[in-house]
Design a protein around this nucleic acid. Structure first.
Length: 815
RNA sequence: GCCGAAGUGGCGGAAAGGUAGACGCGACAGUCUCAAAAACUGUUGGGGGGCAACCCCCGUGUCGGUUCGAAUCCGACCUUCGGCACCA
């Protein structure tokens, strides 16, 4: 009688042994190629849920696989520890954000250890510790000195009742405060920006990156490059200080179709351009607009709103007077915040024109146009009409001709605009890295000298539900001396966006304990760039984009020698439960701990990998995991109960060898492309096959032992604890994780016999088992000679025969 | 609204443009048991035919198209999910 598989005991024992032996401690290794396998570090929300395991278990399996393949693997773990939830906890529960965060980290670290990953905990990075954020601040100074940081006014969400700045997340429903349901307004504050737009062109270049196409596309769309022209429209009122307003358009060829002119409600010239008789209406509209979210504003099909200012601009090409309106669908952040409206050829302009009874003039004739009024806006190309001397040109030629005219007359020029906006890094909160800037009445804006870093968060700040950042009311923090003149000065009280912390953490893992620098340059040179970065698709744009910008800027400052941080990227999908993404508020969070306690970490790891393709995510199922658990139990019995060889069949031994090599080939290929689900299917088929062999005892003991040795090595990255235990029990020396990954021989992995499919007119009609070396001529003859085939083709004329080597013979006949 | 994905048995899913449903779950039947659980063995897309070995038809969200052949490629539509700049 054999012992039962006791997952918990086995897992605990081996985790302790691995830790005691430091088998996963990472060092520089010159004889092995390096492989930096990075998983996005978790936010310190409190508990790891099964979604975290879904991100981390397969990536650990992959890292283990690369390790067995002979790479020197760095697969570190840390915590993204600054952010809003810690501050909310402070306000609602009276616990300091630091204590809340560190308590969460202790719990999460314990959970992560229970997974049995190869993380080298000596390299842990925690972004909220002064030893880390000192360097986040140092990077801010580098960006500042490189001219990449600047201060400007920008709107924030503001709750008039709470008197506080709100994150987008805290604005709920139809734009109300989550705490008091008061409608949220916008307020302009001086804030810090990073000049990411300077890198717009470079960030569009993904040519050297092995990233999923759809992520590259999303980033390209995020940059939103548009080519067009900037055109000046002269103001009719010549008394004004301002003489003209510039617009950006991608369609200068439609300029003769301009029938009105639009400004964003936030445009600085709105009040000057408003006639007294329109003031009341305009003011009302401008006050209403900030309640809309940006994507409500630009939505197509939504009833258009706006107000007429009572003033006009002059169209440079035909001298026409064009009325100036404001409309919320014109965004102040894109282009120049002003639009020449061409209702005939832009859907939203047409909706606006119809709503306010403004004229529509067709200037690009669609193919076959007979001069009738267009039913809908025509945005395609065509022939220019109603366009003065340009009429008759194609819109493409017209584009060039009009640009040439604008440039010749000085009315405008060809230009490129980006949807990308500069990165606003200021947050009016406590729990973040303080921005290392001091404001002095005499010296102005003064950066904190490097030697004075870190600017520490004051531990005694008060967390009140009203008011702004607690830092603002912390006198001991705010009041300081100017580093230049030593006179009284005030500290910047905003902290940095947490995306700053996560834009460089992967550098810190290489030298986490370095005190004299943000990172050890030689180690970064050795390990970076990251060879494989995995994480949630929700980071497709922002985090991945900011980190790329960060590294490109560091490259230009001479701090690193590469310009892309992540050579290969893989985004796993989302794990859902009862049809929804897991969240505390929905109450559908699956905690891994209870499953680890009941079935073991290897079962949880295995089930998460078996659920489906990693990039697609999937539905957690209590039923599904028992399937994996049962399989682990079967593997246990298969390997622990003695094998008894009875009648040795050389054919069976040969076939087992073939099956083994076929499995090595499949498992290796599936791991390379992150198909953990089909990798597990292959391993299951192999163990099922081994069970049958064992039942019949038809191979010798040594052949048997060799086969299970192969199985365990293939199994080790997926179920590290069970594989280790069985490796020991089957008489192998410690440790399976220091074994090398098995190779396979192509001629052994290959099938000797194949099933050839016989089709008639593409329909399956017969199958024949043939040697894999069958020739085309033989295959055709065999197919045409089959009785079943003859029945389908008799009396019909043979049109052609299609042969797909080793797969199909398709006989095409005409009736 | 814009951008990006995904739709295949009762369920999770598998299929280089070439046998649709591997592997697993569930269900059903059986073995073991006083019984149950566990474990093991077998069956399992729908419809029809045959005593039977088997055979035929229909089937991959919907409608079209390309192809000798489409789950896979193309077009339109429907549904679900992710992102949209202060959640991280």
């Amino acid at each position: 009688m054999t012992q039962k598989y006791a997952a918990q005991e086995i897992e605990k024992t081996w985790q302790q042994r691995w830790a005691a032996d430091h088998i996963y401690t990472v060092r520089r290794h010159n004889s092995r190629p390096k492989f930096y396998a990075l998983t996005m570090f978790p936010y310190t929300s409190g508990d790891l849920h099964i979604g975290h395991w879904y991100a981390m278990a397969p990536s650990d399996t992959y890292a283990r696989f690369k390790r067995m393949q002979g790479y020197n693997v760095l697969h570190p773990m840390g915590f993204d520890a600054f952010g809003l939830p810690a501050e909310n906890a402070a306000i609602s529960r009276g616990i300091h954000p630091y204590d809340w965060t560190m308590r969460n980290i202790d719990n999460m670290r314990r959970q992560l250890r229970s997974m049995g990953a190869i993380y080298d905990w000596d390299r842990e990075v925690i972004t909220c510790l002064p030893s880390y954020y000192k360097w986040t601040q140092w990077f801010f100074l580098k960006f500042y000195h490189a001219g990449l940081a600047y201060r400007a006014k920008a709107p924030v969400n503001w709750c008039p009742r709470c008197q506080t700045v709100l994150a987008n997340e805290q604005v709920i429903g139809e734009g109300v405060c989550e705490r008091c349901s008061t409608p949220v307004t916008k307020r302009e504050l001086e804030q810090w920006f990073f000049r990411i737009t300077k890198y717009a062109e470079e960030l569009l270049d993904h040519s050297r990156l092995d990233w999923p196409e759809h992520i590259k596309t999303m980033q390209k769309n995020w940059v939103g490059k548009s080519e067009g022209a900037e055109i000046s429209f002269r103001l009719e009122d010549e008394e004004m200080e301002q003489k003209e307003i510039r617009v950006f358009t991608t369609r200068p060829d439609t300029i003769f179709g301009v029938t009105f002119f639009l400004l964003a409600p936030e445009h600085p010239l709105v009040s000057q351009l408003t006639r007294p008789e329109h003031k009341a209406e305009v003011d009302k509209y401008v006050a209403w607009c900030p309640r809309q979210t940006e994507y409500e504003r630009v939505a197509l099909g939504r009833e258009k709103t706006g107000a007429f200012l009572g003033t006009y601009v002059i169209n440079p090409v035909n001298g026409e007077r064009v009325p100036i309106w404001i409309a919320d669908y014109v965004l102040p952040t894109y282009g120049t915040g002003a639009v020449m409206a061409v209702p005939a050829h832009d859907e939203r302009d047409l909706e606006f024109a119809r709503r306010f009874k403004l004229p529509v003039r067709t200037v690009i004739a669609p193919p076959g146009w007979m001069g009738e009024e267009l039913a809908e806006a025509y945005a395609g190309s065509g022939t220019m009409v109603n366009s003065g001397e340009f009429s008759g040109l194609s819109s493409e030629k017209g584009y060039e001709a009009i640009c040439a005219l604008l440039e010749e007359k000085g009315w405008g020029k060809r230009t490129v605009v980006y949807r990308l906006r500069d990165w606003l890094i200021s947050r009016q909160r406590y729990w973040g890295a303080p921005i290392p800037i001091i404001y002095c009445d005499r010296c102005g804006t003064v950066p904190v000298p490097e030697e004075d870093l870190p600017v520490l968060l004051p531990p005694n700040a008060e967390f009140k539900p009203t008011g702004e950042s607690p830092l603002k009311y912390c006198q001991s923090f705010v009041n300081t001396a100017c580093p230049k003149c030593s006179g009284p000065a005030r500290r910047e009280t905003d902290t940095m966006d947490t995306f700053m912390c996560s834009s460089w953490y992967f550098l810190r893992y290489t030298s986490p304990k370095t005190r004299s620098a943000s990172f050890n340059a030689a180690k970064v040179k050795y390990w970076l760039p990251v060879d494989l970065y995995t994480g949630g698709a929700e980071h497709a744009v922002m985090h991945l984009f900011y980190a790329r910008f960060f590294i490109k800027a560091l490259k230009d400052m001479g701090l690193v020698s590469f310009n892309e941080p992540f050579a290969r990227l893989f985004n796993q999908g989302t794990i859902v439960y009862r049809g929804d993404k897991m969240s505390k508020s929905r109450g559908n969070v699956i905690a891994p701990d209870e499953y680890v306690a009941k079935l073991g970490a290897d079962a949880v790891r295995g089930y998460l990998m078996f659920i489906g393709p990693w990039e697609l995510g999937g539905e957690w199922s209590d039923r599904g995991i028992v399937g994996i658990s049962r399989w682990l139990n079967r593997v246990w019995s298969l390997m622990t109960a003695d094998y008894a060889s009875r009648v040795v069949d050389p054919e069976a031994e040969k076939e087992l060898l073939h099956f083994t090599h076929k499995t090595i080939k499949e498992v290796t290929a599936d791991l390379e492309r992150f198909r953990f689900n089909t990798m597990l299917s292959s391993l299951m088929e192999f163990s099922n096959y081994l069970s049958k062999i064992k039942e019949r005892g038809i191979v010798s003991s040594s052949v048997w032992k060799e086969a299970i040795g192969y199985f365990l090595r293939l199994f080790a990255p997926t179920a590290p604890h069970l594989a280790e235990e069985l490796w020991k029990r089957t008489g192998h020396p410690y440790s399976v994780h220091n074994q090398s990954w098995p190779g396979y021989a192509e001629e052994l992995a290959r099938e000797e016999e194949i099933t050839l499919i016989i089709q008639v007119n593409g329909k399956l009609r017969d199958k024949i088992l043939v040697s894999a070396s069958v020739s085309e001529v033989e295959a055709r003859e065999l197919a045409l000679g089959r009785e079943r085939v003859k029945a389908y083709i008799s009396g019909k004329s043979l049109t052609r025969v299609i042969y797909v080597p080793k797969r199909v013979v398709n006989i095409v006949v005409a009736s």
